[in-house]
């Protein structure tokens, strides 16, 4: 049953991803992209990564869709003459190459949930976190302990990335929005 669910979900995500890439009408693409986000969030939940799933739900499906809608509302939108994008040859070649590499390497991956995968079994990183995170931080959610504790500097960097996105938008749009009150 687990694999049947996984296959159905995968089919849905694949369909949404293809539709996002191929549809021509921007409004339709945004809506389809939101559906893709739904599928991805389900996938993360299915793989038991609830933190990632929640982020995908909050950012991918919620905020991104709204910001994209707002952007096409404030810009001129042309009526597409065609419904389906015609893929161009160089892009297809690059895509095909990447696909071959990905499929070729995915077969080399450790099995899903394997206890021998280095990512899990490495006694000095992952296992160390699992053993020590509660002792070190008194935080129950090991993900939070890693994010804010062991790899807190990455979190700092990511927070700065978000901040930088805001600043860049201000610079691009030429807004000193905040000096006029």
């Amino acid at each position: 049953m687990v694999s049947a669910f996984g296959i159905a979900l995968f089919g849905f995500v694949l369909a949404t991803a293809l539709a996002t890439a191929l549809l021509r009408d921007i409004l339709a693409v945004i809506i389809v992209f939101a559906a893709y986000s739904l599928g991805m969030a389900l996938f993360y939940a299915f793989l038991l990564a609830p933190d990632v799933a929640m982020t995908e739900a909050a950012i991918g499906a919620g905020v991104t869709t709204l910001l994209l809608l707002l952007t096409i509302a404030t810009t001129v939108r042309e009526e597409p003459g065609i419904a389906i994008e015609r893929p161009n040859l160089p892009a297809l070649v690059v895509f095909g190459g990447l696909l071959v590499v990905m499929i070729g390497t995915v077969t080399q991956f450790p099995a899903l949930g394997s206890r021998n995968a280095p990512v899990w079994s490495n006694p000095e990183v992952t296992q160390y976190y699992l053993e020590h995170s509660y002792k070190d931080t008194k935080v129950h959610n090991a993900v939070t302990a890693v994010l804010a504790g062991y790899r807190g500097f990455d979190t700092f960097g990511e927070a700065v990335v978000v901040f930088a996105a805001g600043i860049s938008t201000l610079v691009v749009l030429g807004r000193e929005v905040f000096t006029r009150e």
Partner: peptide, 29 residues
């Protein structure tokens, strides 16, 4: 995972409001 469901229920509403306003108001969200 129920927490995620809750987040989704909230944002789904927001998305529906946004898209329908976008459509009804002819691009003015």
């Amino acid at each position: 995972l129920l927490d995620i469901a809750l987040v989704y229920a909230l944002l789904n509403f927001l998305m529906a409001v946004a898209i329908s306003k976008f459509t009804v108001e002819r691009g003015g969200v």
